[in-house]
């Protein structure tokens, strides 16, 4: 393959970008889940505040969400099952974007409950839907990047040999065979 030095440089930067994306996305998830996990009832309340899901499902989601965020966050930071974890994280963030947009469109006055709290706003507080949506959509993009270019540097996946045979090396071997 012919590659200019510049594009080669860009290619070698990709795994580092993936690592950075993993750390940011995973870090946010761990913090968000950690702030919520000690208070499951608030978490349930925050989900219900969206008035999007029926009560019984909202309760389940409220209990499930904090631990799911933490586990997916840890997987991302560790770079274990990177692709699956990133896909789940991106879908989660996409769901949050949808939920917040829904609350906004419906004219609800709620706090997104992203980092704990029961979704209630005090009288003097203003909802921050746009900021929440932009932030979560940015995280969706990070997740998509990791899905496209897993697993990045410092990933357990690589250490455990979970990344599969290196495509380029395989190609080289086969070409080598033909030449020999």
């Amino acid at each position: 393959m012919i590659a200019s030095p510049a594009s080669h440089k860009a290619r070698s930067a990709i795994p580092w970008v993936t690592t950075a994306a993993r750390l940011v996305l995973g870090g946010v998830l761990i913090v968000a889940g950690g702030l919520k996990i000690g208070n499951p009832s608030d978490s349930v309340l925050a989900v219900k505040a969206y008035q999007l899901l029926p009560d019984s499902i909202a309760t389940t989601v409220g209990y499930l969400l904090p631990i799911l965020e933490i586990v997916v966050g840890v997987l991302l930071v560790a770079g274990l099952l990177t692709r699956v974890a990133a896909a789940v994280a991106a879908l989660l963030m996409l769901a949050f974007v949808f939920g917040i947009a829904w609350a906004w469109a419906k004219g609800l006055r709620i706090d997104c409950g992203c980092f704990g709290g029961g979704g209630e706003l005090k009288d003097w507080q203003e909802p921050s839907y746009l900021l929440d949506i932009v932030r979560d959509f940015g995280l969706v993009l990070l997740g998509a990047w990791v899905v496209r270019f897993p697993p990045g540097r410092f990933a357990l996946d690589s250490a455990l040999g979970l990344t599969g045979p290196d495509r380029t090396r395989d190609d080289e071997e086969e070409t080598g065979d033909e030449q020999g």
């Binding site: 996990i37 499951p40 009832s41 978490s43 349930v44 209990y63 499930l64 904090p66 631990i67 799911l68 933490i70 586990v71």
Partner: peptide, 14 residues
């Protein structure tokens, strides 16, 4: 399993 355990724990505490 970790997700399941955390879920059960949250549900049982509350």
């Amino acid at each position: 399993a970790a997700v399941g355990a955390g879920w059960m724990w949250a549900a049982s505490r509350s």
